[in-house]
Design a protein around this nucleic acid. Sequence first.
DNA 1: GTATGTGAACTATTTCACAGCT
DNA 2: AGCTGTGAAATAGTTCACATAC
Lengths: 209, 209
Amino acid sequence: MSNRKIPEGTISRLFIYLREVTSIVNMNIRTVSSAELGDRTNLSDAQVRKDLGYFGQFGVSGSGYDTQELKAALEKILGKGKTWNVAVVGVGHLGSALLAYSGFKEHGLNLVAAFDSESKKIGKNVGGATIQPIEEMPKAIRDKKVSIGIITVPAESAQEVADRLISSGVECILNFAPASLNVPENIKIKDVDLSRELETLSYFLVNKK
Amino acid sequence: MSNRKIPEGTISRLFIYLREVTSIVNMNIRTVSSAELGDRTNLSDAQVRKDLGYFGQFGVSGSGYDTQELKAALEKILGKGKTWNVAVVGVGHLGSALLAYSGFKEHGLNLVAAFDSESKKIGKNVGGATIQPIEEMPKAIRDKKVSIGIITVPAESAQEVADRLISSGVECILNFAPASLNVPENIKIKDVDLSRELETLSYFLVNKK
DNA sequence: GTATGTGAACTATTTCACAGCT
DNA sequence: AGCTGTGAAATAGTTCACATAC
């Protein structure tokens, strides 16, 4: 079962289940059913069981899931505890907010480098990293074994930054620039397009009656 | 054709096409084919045609789409030019970054109110709005005709904030808190879960070989 | 000849529904 | 009796492929 193709959405939901089961464990509740988990996450019971089913059999017929076991299983599947080195390119408003974002450490991400093209920012310290010029990217990324690059530069320069990140050796990219980037097959890219989220809400407001 | 059910993803992609066709218009190019548009956006030509097809027939057989016309049509469909009032609840790092984010005005969103529960933040001015205590939310939202609420508070208080926003009259919510919120059917909610994006990348790194 | 618009085929994902375990 | 695990059915979304229009 484990090597069937797993939907993208399943992975994302697994993190939601983990969040929820962690809170349930903290309430000292020993078991939980797929229906309860579904209620708490606004998902169907069938969806919960199907998602978990991709990774094995964690439940007990008739009583549900042992919360501690399920938590441990999800943490194992999702690689909780592993840590990765991260670099941010572009230290504007969004970049700075990300650098100050406490969630980084919690998710096993160590910010080890920051780059910006504006010379007046060079040398400043943000979130524990010293801002370097873009030119130093390849060497710094290799030396510091960065595997995740975060792009928070304007759309115009995003592709160029992505290319440099990739040729320097990063394996995944979180792209905040509103641009469609071309990357090789083996590189994982996630777009977080805030403009588009806002625009989609605005579309909803225009088109509801 | 216009009243068939339109996939969520289609709307989102329409904004990508608009972004691209705008840049093409600025290059003084008069026509574009679905194949070219697909190349530039990393989507298939069929996807482009299908997406546009939900809203009418904009193309010319044999030559493609008139770029000016397509741009105008997309702007009309997507409600470009309309403006909406926005309130932010929670003025921490992320909230402040959003408030400073220039993209707001560009997308027709006017920040008209900001709220925080920390008394030492009250009265400060951010992005043109004065931070008010949460208690003043219902009145301020009604008075200022806010239709979009942005939640950037910790997960624990997100549901409560959402409830208050909704009872005060907002119609959509952009939720940055890592929590599954319950909202009535008629309210549009979009989750932007940065933690989950980061976690998903980390899952990818754990599970690639 | 070239590129659209769109049913039909295909693929992916979700929901159903129930046999089987405790 | 209650709840899981999972094929089968249903639904959603994407790609194909071609008749049609310029």
